[in-house]
Simulated scan of single mutants.
Amino acid sequence: LLKDPEGEKILQTAYQFANLQTSTRNIVTAAERAAKVVFALKTYAHDDSSGNKTEANIIEGIDTILTLYYNQLKYGVDVIRNYDDSLSAILCYPDQLNQVWTNLIHNGIQAMESKGTLTIDVRQQDDQIKVSFTDSGKGIPPDVIPKIFQPFFTTKPPGEGSGLGLDIVKKIVDKHQGQIEVESVPGKTTFTVVLPMEIVSE
């Protein structure tokens, strides 16, 4: 082919065609990603002002937040999803639970300084749903753990944290008659949200 007088043109055409295919794939991937982000934003911005619990899928809510955090995750955070896909939708306040997932994912990313592994476990245990977020950050000192759910308590530098994130998380979990637990050692911190299984009546 290289000896063929037209060989250089053939190779150049093949190279351009390969680049065109790559560009097309990139455009399609970008369009799909944009569509997911738009959908996630619409879902996140939805406000159920009725004050009543509504049917929601916990896993879909978490994935919505992960989509919104895609740019912060893609360059240094490996996300491991351990989902029980057989989970039924439950009655809850989905917008408020999305605030819980947002806070816990955001805190995990910050704790790892955007480099590490974030593991999310969602499973049913008896009549409860357990949702765990485990990050590979430096951990929370034992003397700090009892204070982290107190309003205005923060270990972040001035101007970087209000100290209300985990306080709000706990209030939302309490509203669902659930519990939130934390375990931490250097290199592994796990926040676990336990929610009662309130199944939608057929």
Rank of each mutant, 00 (worst) to 15 (best):
Leu2Ile: 08
Asp4Ser: 07
Pro5Val: 02
Pro5Leu: 05
Glu6Pro: 00
Glu6Ile: 08
Glu8Pro: 00
Glu8Met: 11
Lys9Thr: 09
Ile10Gly: 01
Leu11Ile: 10
Gln12Trp: 06
Tyr15Phe: 12
Gln16Thr: 10
Phe17Asp: 03
Ala18Ile: 05
Leu20Asn: 10
Thr22Cys: 00
Ser23Ala: 13
Ser23Cys: 00
Thr24Gly: 00
Val28Glu: 03
Val28His: 03
Thr29Gln: 13
Arg33Ala: 10
Ala35Lys: 08
Val37Lys: 13
Val37Thr: 11
Val38Leu: 13
Val38Pro: 01
Phe39Glu: 15
Ala40Tyr: 05
Lys42Cys: 04
Tyr44Val: 03
Tyr44Ile: 07
Ala45Ile: 01
His46Met: 11
Asp47Ala: 15
Asp48Trp: 09
Asp48Thr: 13
Ser49Thr: 12
Ser50Gly: 15
Ser50Lys: 13
Asn52Arg: 15
Gly61Ile: 07
Ile62Tyr: 06
Asp63Trp: 02
Thr64Val: 11
Thr64Glu: 06
Ile65Ala: 00
Thr67Ala: 02
Leu68Trp: 09
Leu68Gly: 04
Tyr70Asp: 08
Tyr70Phe: 12
Tyr70Ala: 11
Asn71Arg: 12
Lys74His: 06
Gly76Pro: 02
Val77Lys: 00
Ile80Cys: 00
Arg81Cys: 04
Arg81Glu: 14
Asn82Val: 10
Asn82Thr: 11
Tyr83Ile: 09
Asp85Met: 14
Ser86Ile: 11
Leu87Thr: 05
Ser88Val: 12
Ile90Gly: 04
Cys92Arg: 05
Cys92Gln: 06
Tyr93Arg: 13
Tyr93Gly: 04
Asp95Phe: 07
Leu97Lys: 07
Leu97Gln: 10
Leu97Ser: 12
Leu97Thr: 08
Leu97Ile: 12
Gln99Thr: 11
Gln99Ala: 01
Val100Asn: 03
Val100Phe: 05
Val100Arg: 08
Trp101Pro: 01
Thr102Met: 11
Thr102Asp: 10
Thr102Tyr: 11
Thr102Lys: 09
Leu104Asn: 02
Leu104Phe: 02
Ile105Thr: 08
Ile105Pro: 01
His106Ser: 13
Asn107Gln: 10
Asn107Lys: 09
Gly108Asp: 03
Ile109Met: 05
Gln110Ser: 12
Gln110Glu: 12
Gln110Ile: 05
Ala111Arg: 13
Ala111Trp: 01
Met112Glu: 03
Glu113Leu: 06
Ser114Phe: 09
Ser114Ala: 11
Lys115Ser: 05
Lys115Asp: 13
Thr117Trp: 08
Thr117Leu: 03
Thr117Val: 14
Leu118Val: 02
Leu118Asn: 07
Thr119Gly: 00
Thr119Ala: 06
Ile120Glu: 04
Ile120Asn: 02
Ile120Lys: 04
Asp121Gly: 06
Val122Gly: 05
Val122Met: 07
Arg123Asn: 14
